[in-house]
């Protein structure tokens, strides 16, 4: 009896970093190889300071792509995935922004787990022989080192980065052509169908990815990645869809009120501000109480 073929090709580790979007982020940082070659070599701290916002943009770009996936609209992300609509959708509702803010500031996710996971993804880039130091000009050649420093430093690791890199890895696995393109995020370059395949892999906890991450987790957590990925995959889909229909993009925290009608309200016609509605239809068969023990 032979093993069935894997549903997707195994992760090509040599292009790991490029496919996670880090290479694209670096190009955005420097304006391209040629210009970067003439620039002075920045210090490590400076480089970290330059890299961090680029990676933040990568994460935001990923989750805007996710927002379009949940509720397509009249935005570039929806067009890129091949499902444009004539009305505002999840991107306009800023559902991706909500996911990033939620993951980075308010997910109660222990750094003791987030950090090894992130390190696993970054060291995998080096292990995979991406060879950034050999292939890129000097300051970009230090991008890998800067990423390592960022992730090994004392600062809290943004969980949105962990999640975005995970989606980027899977995006490259689903469609290698996603490594380069219009957006910073490989995930956002995918078609709607391929985005679904990313989540299929995430929910199936693809063994190659699990093995990659699992070896970097300390005991006694080793082996627990499978459940974690299922939780993450399911949670991202639920949270971003919730965000597509809420008021957060037009929320005035000071007044505790909205400044305009939310995208989701305009789409559905809902208005949730009321303290009462005229929908009382009486009592079923006229009974106002249940009586007796049987």
């Amino acid at each position: 009896m032979t093993e069935p073929p894997p549903p997707f090709p195994p992760l090509p580790r040599r292009v790991f970093l490029a496919r996670t979007g880090v290479l694209g982020a670096a190009a955005g940082l420097t304006g391209g190889h040629g210009r970067a070659a003439a620039a002075p070599v920045p210090g490590v701290e400076e480089l970290i300071g330059l890299v961090r916002p680029v990676l933040a943009r990568l994460a935001l770009d990923t989750f805007r792509g996710l927002a379009a996936f949940a509720l397509p609209g009249d935005d570039a992300y929806s067009r890129a995935q091949g499902t444009p609509r004539g009305r505002a959708g999840g991107v306009a509702a800023e559902a991706g922004d909500l996911v990033v803010a939620s993951l980075d500031r308010l997910v109660p996710f222990p750094q003791e787990v987030a950090r090894p996971l992130t390190m696993a993804l970054v060291t995998a880039a080096a292990d995979a022989g991406i060879g950034l130091p050999r292939q890129l000009p000097p300051e970009l050649g230090r991008l890998d080192a800067a990423l390592r420093l960022l992730l090994r430093g004392d600062e809290k690791i943004p969980l949105s980065l962990v999640a975005a890199v995970l989606l980027g890895v899977l995006a490259a696995q689903v469609n290698p052509a996603a490594a380069n393109g219009l957006f910073l995020s490989p995930f956002s370059r995918l078609s709607y169908r391929d985005k679904a395949r990313v989540f299929e892999l995430l929910e199936h906890t693809d063994s190659d990815l699990v093995a990659l991450l699992d070896t970097h987790l300390p005991q006694p957590l080793r082996g627990s990645v499978s459940g974690l990925l299922k939780y993450l995959g399911s949670g991202l889909l639920s949270l971003v869809t919730f965000g597509c229909f809420t008021e957060h993009a037009v929320w005035d925290a000071g007044r505790r009120d909205i400044t305009a009608l939310p995208v989701g309200w305009r789409l559905t016609g809902y208005d949730g501000r009321t303290d009462g509605l005229d929908d009382f239809k009486g009592y079923y068969q006229g009974r106002k109480e249940a009586v007796g023990r049987a």
């Binding site: 996936f69 949940a70 397509p72 499902t83 709607y192 889909l237 789409l267 559905t268 016609g269 809902y270």
Partner: peptide, 16 residues
């Protein structure tokens, strides 16, 4: 229910 199907289901009073 996700993506285009979700949009079509929810729009124009669809949630009700």
């Amino acid at each position: 229910v996700f993506g285009p199907e979700l949009a079509e289901l929810m729009q124009d009073g669809g949630h009700d």
